[in-house]
């Protein structure tokens, strides 16, 4: 990408917490290599403290984001898609590095990620119609059920699919008003941090999505046992770690989305399960009378 004879200016990959890009407080990093074993960059190796800071940021962002109108959230997700589209070449290059895919395949994966965001953007003001209900109770009462976001969701992103897989686990969580702390693919974390740059310029309030890079086996248990996390998506956890995390999650009765059995096809129709896993149903009663 650079002129012969000119030394490229490399990017420092940091974390994305509360809308800012801090290094890990631990000062640690780990070398990330391409699928061919070539050094790409030193990624931050987030610590327990970073995870806790990220939860704090996510909690702080929750009232504003969950209180935003569905229309507004939908527009912001669409804006993320726009920003991603604008960086198509950059993400394609990162996917070629990370996964060793062809340029054509990389382009398709970025397109699919953009399209996935657009798909979810449209759900923001429709999921209520799908999950809500006007209940015909046997008495003079107005009775209405509506879905609400669960709160702060910890997401362990899948190791494969560093962009499409990542978008496919983040978008369904935030579209309904949840905020999240995401542990990026340990193997291929760089697209996640570049995605942070996209999110930071998409009118998404800081703290709605927080991205951590590092060791999944180190970070996931802290998030699973964190008492201010309301739910956890274990998609990216290997089996044994997923069981341990599910057990830890019981402490404050987190909602748990277990990893799929078998390989996930991120290009397939995602269905609504990833959204509904992080929704609560609130039912309001009021008497009817004159």
């Amino acid at each position: 990408m650079t002129e012969p004879g000119r030394l490229a200016v490399r990017k420092t990959y940091k974390l994305y917490i509360g809308g800012a890009f801090p290094r890990s407080e631990s000062g640690r990093s780990y070398a990330v290599t391409s699928s061919k074993g070539q050094f790409l960059a030193n990624a931050s190796r987030a610590s327990r403290k970073d995870a806790r800071d990220a939860v704090t940021a996510a909690r702080k962002a929750f009232p504003g984001w969950s209180g935003a109108t569905a229309y507004n959230r939908g527009q912001i997700l669409y804006r993320v898609a726009e920003m991603l589209e604008g960086r198509r070449a950059q993400f394609a290059a990162e996917l070629i590095d990370a996964d060793g895919v062809s340029a054509r395949k990389a382009g398709e994966l970025v397109d699919a990620a953009v399209d996935r965001l657009v798909w979810y953007a449209g759900w923001s003001d429709k999921i209520g119609a799908l999950r809500g209900a006007a209940n015909p109770v046997a008495g003079p009462y107005f009775n209405l059920s509506t879905p609400e976001p669960t709160g702060v969701v910890a997401v362990v992103a899948p190791p494969m699919g560093p962009l499409l897989g990542l978008i496919s686990v983040i978008a369904p969580v935030i579209v309904s008003g949840n905020t999240c702390v995401v542990v990026a693919s340990e193997r291929a974390p760089l697209p996640a941090i570049t995605l942070g740059e996209v999110l930071a310029t998409s009118d998404l309030p800081g703290g709605v999505v927080n991205l951590l890079t590092g060791r999944v086996a180190e970070l996931a248990p802290w998030l699973a046992s964190h008492m201010d996390v309301n739910a956890i998506d274990l998609t990216g956890c290997p089996e044994e770690l997923a069981v341990a995390c599910e057990r830890d999650a019981a402490e404050n009765l987190k909602r748990v989305l277990r990893p799929a059995t078998g390989k996930v096809d991120w290009l397939a129709d995602p269905g609504v399960e990833r959204m509904t896993a992080f929704l609560e149903t609130k039912t309001v009663w009021h008497p009817i009378g004159v």
Binding site: V137, L253, K282, T283, W285
Partner: peptide, 24 residues
């Protein structure tokens, strides 16, 4: 942050009306 909100009434139940909690 509660699964059922009773306004100007309380402890009403009906099979058509979803019941259950948030958080713990």
């Amino acid at each position: 942050r509660a699964g059922v909100v009773w306004a100007n009434t309380f402890n009403k139940f009906d099979p058509t009306s979803p019941f259950g909690g948030y958080k713990e």
